[in-house]
């Protein structure tokens, strides 16, 4: 999965969110070692200080933990990361439904439309 960052928003929270998504989608697994701050910075094309800040934030949220001398690891309990994904999906779904509601479509016809679209 690529790092998709919006230039008009602060970077640090975006890095936090993307790490959560990558954990929830299984790219980083519970208990496994993460990329280092520098590697992550290079992959995402951002400043290492930003990644450091994001990782520290994620440590406070108990999504990552650090071991002195050996780097960063994903927590055993990944419910919080999964919740981030759920919230994001809920938010996007709501936006989608709202925008089609505004065009006069009701929820049932939107659902039918989605099914048809997926079959094509």
């Amino acid at each position: 999965m690529k790092w998709t960052l919006d230039k008009a928003k602060p970077l640090c929270p975006q890095i936090c969110e993307q790490v959560c998504l990558k954990i929830a989608l299984g790219e980083f697994k519970a208990g496994e070692k993460m990329f280092s701050v520098r590697e992550t910075a290079l992959l995402a094309g951002v400043n290492p200080n930003t990644v450091q800040k994001a990782f520290e934030q994620l440590e406070q949220d108990e999504i990552l933990y650090s071991v002195r001398g050996s780097g960063w690891f994903v927590s055993e309990d990944i419910t919080k990361a999964e919740n981030t994904l759920k919230n994001l999906v809920a938010e996007k779904t709501e936006m989608y439904f709202n925008s089609l509601n505004a065009l006069g479509m009701d929820n049932d016809s939107i659902k039918n439309y989605v099914k048809e679209w997926d079959n094509e």
């Binding site: 230039k7 008009a8 928003k9 602060p10 970077l11 640090c12 930003t50």
Partner: peptide
């Protein structure tokens, strides 16, 4: 940079 983006809702560019 993050302050600039948060305050203005824009990229620095």
């Amino acid at each position: 940079i993050d302050e600039i983006r948060a305050e203005n809702n824009k990229s620095v560019d």
